[in-house]
Amino acid sequence: MKVEQISVFVENKSGRLSEVTRVLGNAGVNIRALSIADSSDFGILRIIVNDNDKAVEVLKANDFTVSKTEVVAIEVPDSPGGLASILDILEREGLNVEYMYAFVERSSNNALIVFRFDENDRAIQVLTSNGITIVNGSNVYSL
């Protein structure tokens, strides 16, 4: 039920982000979703790609520090209040969202949003029991 995300450490200086995308592009790796969290000095680039092993391999070979994290991809109804209803459930259950970001592509007619919880497993259980659709990794990578 979980999706593997790759995080990359990048210094805040020009050209580093495009270097990551260039390295991945040259290796034929496609980026499905992307977000950047940054401080004044550095940024953490979080990506979901179609080929995790390949991405990690080429990034490491180019001297980037990378790590893999498990995240949850959730279908959010593309209608007013769609996201709010999900956040309500999470709040009611006391589940903490560390961060979240959206996919460019859609899943059927719904928006697809990546969540990183402090308790991924419990979040999945709570959301599914509330009728929310969790998308499998294999489906996400091949979007």
């Binding site: 401080s39 520090t65 990378v66 790590s67 994290t69 560390e98």
Partner: peptide, 9 residues
């Protein structure tokens, strides 16, 4: 390095 890296700022 990988030992001190985290996906959280």
């Amino acid at each position: 390095n990988e030992k001190i890296f985290s996906d959280e700022v």
